[in-house]
Design a protein around this nucleic acid. Structure first.
Lengths: 203, 203, 203, 203
DNA sequence: GATGAATGAGCATTCATTCAT
DNA sequence: AATGAATGAATGCTCATTCAT
């Protein structure tokens, strides 16, 4: 009576297939029929699990973000120094991208084609993610290692932009010229220096 | 009796109309008929100037990048210190975005929906733009103000990502919570500190 | 503690539910799922009792016509004068419509959307119904109260059309401007006069 | 330079084709592709002239009713006696049906499948038509040939129902057992007798 | 018998592109 | 060059029907 998942949960299989197809062909050029075939289900079945093609796209994002934010926070909680946390954050983000290239592609490029997402959803889960960065910065400011001149609400987005653009470039790069590890090191070096508090204060 | 340019170059009028329409509705949701109406020409006329809808999208990018790279270089040539050049670059980019919000929207969001652009074109004009940043960094490294640890090819992209993400956030922000000037200052402060060469070595 | 029939015959329950749903939404806009829900059964169950959606539609008709023809004949048998029978027929038909508005709606409007019904079935049960009228007319002609000029096969249909159209109008009328009784009286007055045999010949 | 309609007006051609297809297959079973092919145009062309399939169905009705009401009034105006007008009305209606069987089929059977029509449109043009009958009755009542007991608003509908049902039966009849002329005569005989004013009045 | 998840054929509608004028 | 009516390929979604449980 062992519970063997005879066939993987259809919901998950469709999400997975859609991620692959969308990242390969682009959202608008992907057909529901393509996704259905890749998931090994009938077209109609997709509509038993998702309201529409757009809903499917947005679900890909939501499905993963919950998991990543949870894992990210868990990962960061292992470290106490804000600098160390920051390093872990950057490495974590880039390693996620490396391990989930299709998913990254969909979130970074395809998701923005959903006006529904751009208008309504983005806020929620995405800002949860940004808030993680913000909290690291604020923690560093309180403990005196990051400069108080830094506006966490502005810089958090700059950091996200930098890290994400690196990830995007890397994902799109056909012949990888350097490892994501190398990128992470460069980014940390620059951002940590850039946010560092001046020992005696400066003009 | 305001002097309206009676018959502005149709090519430019179509580019202008397409930029507006694409940024408002998104590339895939924009119809050639919409663009034609906004440009005050017949649908068929668009095909006298552009091979296809995708060609029109890419043309928007090429049309503007030439101009911006040219203007940018001219602007930067007024300054000699790499730090000053860097500041001008950041301000210049952000002010361009501010003054051409529709265009920015199209380049940042819609353009990526063209697989042709993502695969073929991006390199050319976009890398010209990135090279401007790269050159500033290299110049700073040569003159000893920027750390040699910085890999210009990596960091140029991080900087672009950060600046562009700030611009994107600002464009999408409905109630502007801060000026782009403020953003520019924060970014410069952080990046210049981050890239600064350590006089006596680092920790 | 009202005595609700705990498990009414499913066949009847589905017919009843379908009648309601079809009359509300129209046959083509009604989904089997709607009917199943209204009947409190699973979708698949419907196919245990009916071959197809169309079969269900036609069954509604057959189910009721048997009953109505039987009741109608019984009702009419109480009267011996053809004129009285005619009046009873008109009142009976209109009162049936009044008491079974959903059913009337389905028979008058939705049933005609079944090509199968229009081509094959209509004859049987519907002509049984028409024959009732025909027989009244013929009886009246034999007994000399109805004119021999009347062609019972033609006029029976005209009478049916008139009575049914009145019923339809009345069913669709939102604010009832007059009672069906009033209609019945008007119809009888006119038809009986119209069919009356002229004692000394006609003008 | 003679203006020869090189190809008949597409709008009319589509209406004509749709009438034929709808009457043959029924509205819901007809595909836009069928209509397009019958009209000798591309599918998309239909949408240049009609908003939707339903709009096309309703247009068939409107297109013809204007013409028929106009022609009908013109025809009736040739006669002055209400009785004669009534006869002409019945003959006119039945002859229209005979000459436009496909159209009649669509108006009598298919049109009712449009909820839009049933809810919104029917009133307008259809009541124009009914009003013609009503006016004949009222005129007859004023001139004393029709009984004042007749309620024109009720009987007009009964007459319409009778005439229309006859027409429907005739249209659907495969082997015509009698001419529509014969029907018309029977109907007139009965209705005129039925509405006739009693010389000295009756109980 | 009863269920309801799964199926997949079917179709109205859109819209980039063409081409006769 | 300019037009815009006409085209027709393309596809998201629905829903009657089936069938493994």
């Amino acid at each position: 009576m062992v519970q063997v998942p005879r066939e993987v949960d259809k919901h998950a299989r469709i999400i997975e297939a859609a991620t692959k197809i969308f990242s390969q062909k682009g959202y608008f050029h992907s057909k529901i029929a393509d996704v259905a075939e890749a998931a090994g289900v009938a077209e109609g079945t997709i509509y038993l699990y998702f309201k529409s093609k757009e809903d499917l796209l947005i679900s890909i994002f939501e499905h993963s973000m919950d998991k990543f934010i949870h894992e990210g926070k868990k990962e960061l909680s292992k470290f106490s120094s804000p600098e160390e946390k920051f390093k872990r954050f950057v490495h974590f983000h880039l390693s996620l991208v490396q391990e989930n290239q299709n998913l990254s592609h969909v979130i970074q490029l395809e998701l923005r084609q959903s006006s529904k997402f751009m208008k309504e959803y983005k806020a929620d889960k995405f800002f949860d993610y940004l808030r993680v960065v913000e909290e690291i910065i604020e923690e560093g400011q309180k403990s005196g290692v990051f400069s108080l001149k830094i506006n966490p609400k502005i810089i958090r987005r700059a950091i996200f932009g930098a890290v994400d653009e690196m990830a995007l470039e890397w994902v799109l790069m056909k012949e990888k010229k350097y490892t994501l590890e190398k990128c992470a090191d460069q980014l940390c070096e620059m951002f940590l220096n850039g946010m560092k508090a001046n020992p005696q204060g400066s003009a």
